[in-house]
């Protein structure tokens, strides 16, 4: 299925892009991150990230659908 993935902060630096369109066999965010981690060499494990699907925080095991926007959220540091 096709997903749109947005990158922020250290993940953006590592991926070298703000966003990408991904065709993947992954059916949940966990599987998708695992695939992208291998592709881009992300060092952060899932336990240090949160995930958002279509603009809302979600569970790692939530089923993804065609066209979903997925964002892996590194530890935040606003303020």
């Amino acid at each position: 299925m096709n997903y749109r993935v947005l990158y922020f902060a250290s993940l953006r630096d590592r991926a070298g892009m703000d966003a990408e369109q991904i065709n993947s066999l992954a059916t949940d965010a966990r599987g998708l991150y695992s695939e992208l981690r291998a592709r881009h060499g992300f060092t952060m494990g899932e336990e240090r990230l949160r995930v958002a699907i279509n603009g809302a925080f979600a569970q790692w095991g939530q089923t993804l659908h065609e066209g979903d926007e997925v964002v892996f959220i590194p530890p935040v540091s606003g303020g």
Binding site: F8, A9, A52, V71, I73, P74, V76, S77, G78, G79
Partner: peptide, 14 residues
Amino acid sequence: IIDEVKKRVPIWKN
């Protein structure tokens, strides 16, 4: 409000 914003809102400082 400031404590929760720092903890939860997806903003990153470089």
